[in-house]
């Protein structure tokens, strides 16, 4: 078993939606509600779920954009949740993020060169006179040309901006990068370019990824292990091949079957889920998937299902496996 880089224990993030007159919360959105898993050094962990499942919130907790409501977050054995702001900032350079929207993730008033140089400078990683050389090297790594460093983001296409965002994340030599839907805003032909780039960089720099996506097909290519989230909870974790060949949770099965297959001959037997994802402010009692599940039993509506190991490395939270 390889070394654990990040260990997430019972992490939760609740947002107060509404308070009463005295400031007491009356309505709480449980975006992430007790999630535990670990990410090994050098692996790519795929995190999949539909909008509102809390996957992005979880990513933002990891990079310190949100502080968790409860739970622990161990990075290389150290609990990051107990650190104060100044101490926590020292870990910033180890945990970086790549954003979904390449149009909002670059400061429009800075040149691309300055954007990539900034993290190097503020973390004091290199003396000033070596920074430019490093910026050129990073641009080269992500497939951009050195002369482009003096241009502003609006002069680039979506795919190129995403490359700049990747270079910025790489600049501080992070140990883990949280990729928050890095290709979902890009054109099909550009998606493959960026996915391959991320794959190459992982090899080259020995990176670890938490790869967040809403579709199981994108994650499949890049991940070693995959976790499936539904309404703030992890419902299934398994090594990639195992999950795709042998999905156990009814939600994972539905999610897999919902992906359109690029082959008109092979119209899959499709599981079409009824209804919408319930609101995370007021989730169903018991198993959260019970309101849409096609294998629902009486017990599902009463009690929450805990993650259980059904085969080595394959965890499922479902009462079918009790």
């Amino acid at each position: 078993m390889s070394e654990v880089l990040m260990d997430i224990q019972d992490l939760a993030k609740h947002f107060v939606v509404d308070t009463n007159f005295f400031g007491k919360p009356v309505s709480v959105l449980k975006a992430v509600d007790g999630v535990s898993f670990s990410i090994n050094k050098g692996e790519a962990f795929g995190l999949v779920g539909e909008s509102g499942c809390g996957k992005t919130t979880l990513g933002k907790i990891l990079v310190n954009l949100y502080s968790p409501t409860s739970g622990k977050l161990f990075f290389e054995g150290k609990d990051l949740t107990v650190l104060n702001e100044g101490q926590r900032r020292l870990y910033c350079k180890d945990i970086q993020m790549i954003f979904q929207d390449p149009y909002a993730s670059l400061n429009p008033k800075m040149t691309v060169g300055d954007i990539i140089a900034e993290p190097i400078l503020i973390n004091g990683l290199l003396p000033k006179n070596q920074v430019e050389e490093r910026v050129i090297y990073l641009l080269n790594c992500v497939g951009l040309a050195r002369h482009q460093r003096n241009r502003y983001p609006h002069e680039f296409s979506g795919g190129q901006r995403q490359r700049v965002g990747i270079a910025r994340a790489l600049a501080v030599e992070p140990k883990i990068i949280v990729c928050d839907e890095p290709v979902s805003a890009l054109d099909v032909s550009i998606q493959a370019q960026v996915l391959n780039l991320l794959g190459d960089l992982k090899e080259e720099f020995g990176l670890t990824y938490l790869f967040i996506a809403h579709g199981l097909n994108v994650v499949k290519h890049i991940s070693d292990r995959v976790g499936v989230m539904y309404l703030g909870k992890l419902v299934e974790i398994a090594p990639k091949k195992e999950l795709y060949a042998n999905p156990q949770h009814p939600y994972t099965q539905a999610l897999l079957s919902a992906i359109p297959v690029i082959n008109p001959e092979k119209k899959m037997e499709r599981i079409i889920l009824e209804g919408d994802v319930p609101s995370p402010i007021n989730p169903p009692a018991g198993c959260r998937f019970s309101s849409r599940c096609f294998k629902v039993q009486e017990s599902c509506k009463l009690q929450e299902a805990k993650l259980k190991e059904v085969s080595p490395g394959h965890f499922v939270a479902c009462h079918l496996f009790d």
């Binding site: 296409s157 795919g159 032909s189 493959a192 994108v218 290519h221 795709y244 897999l256 297959v261 690029i262």
Partner: peptide, 23 residues
């Protein structure tokens, strides 16, 4: 385009096919 899409029933670990450049 068809080759560059990650497919659910493809088990290889080869890099995806890429169309080079951009529109």
């Amino acid at each position: 385009l068809l080759k560059s899409i990650p497919q659910i029933d493809n088990d290889s670990d080869e890099p995806l096919y890429m169309i080079k450049g951009m529109v």
